[in-house]
Amino acid sequence: MGKQIYKMTVNGQVKEVMAEPRELLIYVLREKLDLTGPHVGCETSHCGACTVEMNGMSVKSCTVFAAQADGAEITTIEGLGDPDGLHVLQEAFKEHHGLQCGYCTPGMITRAHRLLQENPNPTEVEVRMGIAGNLCRCTGYQNIVKSILAAAAQINAAKEAAE
């Protein structure tokens, strides 16, 4: 099967890409759409560096074929925050030293973003379980967990203030 045109909504914009069905979503995003935030780490769906959001789910984009993503709605790390400022999670990771080499960070934050959508007020154990699909080799997770809990508190406080 030769190349096909696949259409997906990525970070709110409709994109068309030419790809073979077997091409992996991570490479489509990185090489065809120049979204190099998500990374390739293990290639067997263990490390989560390639995590993006697809149709409201956190997925490991190294284990999704381009063809499967046809018609999907996708958010990558590039879709968080805006040109003028960082997203609350991004800010919290910076504030609490939740990253070192930065390689796992886009996948980690993208996953944390989804986690907080589903569980806006997680306990530490729930955060640890919630990011168990994302490996980090640098931080020992302690400050990542701290960052996510801080972001959750901040988001909740902002919500309360708005109500």
Binding site: R30, G37, P38, H39, I77, L86, Q90, K94, G102, Y103
Partner: peptide, 21 residues
């Protein structure tokens, strides 16, 4: 001191070798 690298990395704007095209 908070790290100056982090604004870039948290936005996915790191530049690793496989990002080079």
């Amino acid at each position: 001191r908070k790290r100056v690298e982090d604004a870039r990395f948290t936005q996915g704007k790191g530049n690793y070798v496989d990002d080079i095209k």
